[in-house]
Simulated scan of single mutants.
Amino acid sequence: MKKLILSILCCLVLGISTNAQQRVLKLGDTLHNIALKSAKGQVYDLSKQKAKGFILIFMTPSCDHCLAYEKRIIALNNKYQPKGFLVVGIGPYGDNEKDYPYDAMPAMKKLAESKGFTFPYLADEKFKYTWLFNIRQTPRAVVLKKQKEGFSVAYIGYIDDQPDEKKTPTKKYVEEEVNKLLAGKVN
């Protein structure tokens, strides 16, 4: 009985210490870089891009909500890429074809090609950035502002307030944040 109690306590302590070590980024925190393999086969490195910032979209090929947002994500890229904010898609399951065959790199590549994505679509490695930004559903957006020492987290959340692709959103959260950053209204 003592061994059982000791084993349970050890598991609890290890679990608590492991969770304490998992850092989640919040608004205002700094991310040094993201460098992940793209659906085109190359490593895409944010720090090597000429940009004022990035709009990261966590999305999967088999998610109905993500599919409903495809046109809006493409529109975000078309609107903000010329202004220096680059859209980057990130597939949380991209590196795990065994467990997630409908959302892994082959499916991501097929989706990017069939929809003509002009933005990179990257495979997250072991959910590193998915967990780092506390992404629990897709699609979700993260807006990063380029700084001298990396990227400041400016926004984490929904793209807009309308998941129905047939309806027009009344609040465009990502656009509002990027517009503030472009106007210099946010540090």
Rank of each mutant, 00 (worst) to 15 (best):
I74M: 12
N77K: 08
Q22F: 08
D45A: 07
D45W: 09
R72M: 02
G84F: 12
Y80M: 10
M59Y: 01
R23G: 06
N78A: 10
Y69T: 03
S47E: 14
P92I: 04
D64S: 15
P61G: 10
Q22R: 14
V24R: 06
V88A: 10
D45H: 12
K83I: 06
S62L: 02
T60F: 01
G41E: 14
D29P: 02
C66F: 00
K79N: 12
K83H: 09
K50A: 11
K37D: 10
Q49I: 12
R23E: 14
I90D: 01
F54V: 04
G28D: 08
V43F: 03
A68K: 13
K52A: 11
F58P: 05
Q81G: 03
K79V: 11
C63I: 11
G41I: 11
K50M: 06
N33G: 11
T30M: 15
E70V: 07
G91L: 03
L31T: 09
P61L: 09
G94H: 00
G41H: 11
A75Q: 10
G84W: 10
A75C: 04
L36K: 00
L76H: 02
R23M: 13
A68T: 10
A39E: 09
D64C: 04
L76K: 04
H32R: 15
K40G: 15
L31M: 13
T30N: 14
P92L: 00
Q22M: 13
Y44L: 04
V87H: 07
V88N: 06
I34V: 15
F58C: 04
H65E: 05
N33W: 13
Y44S: 00
K52C: 06
I73Q: 01
K40P: 00
F85P: 01
E70F: 00
L67V: 08
A68P: 12
Q81L: 11
I74Q: 09
L25S: 04
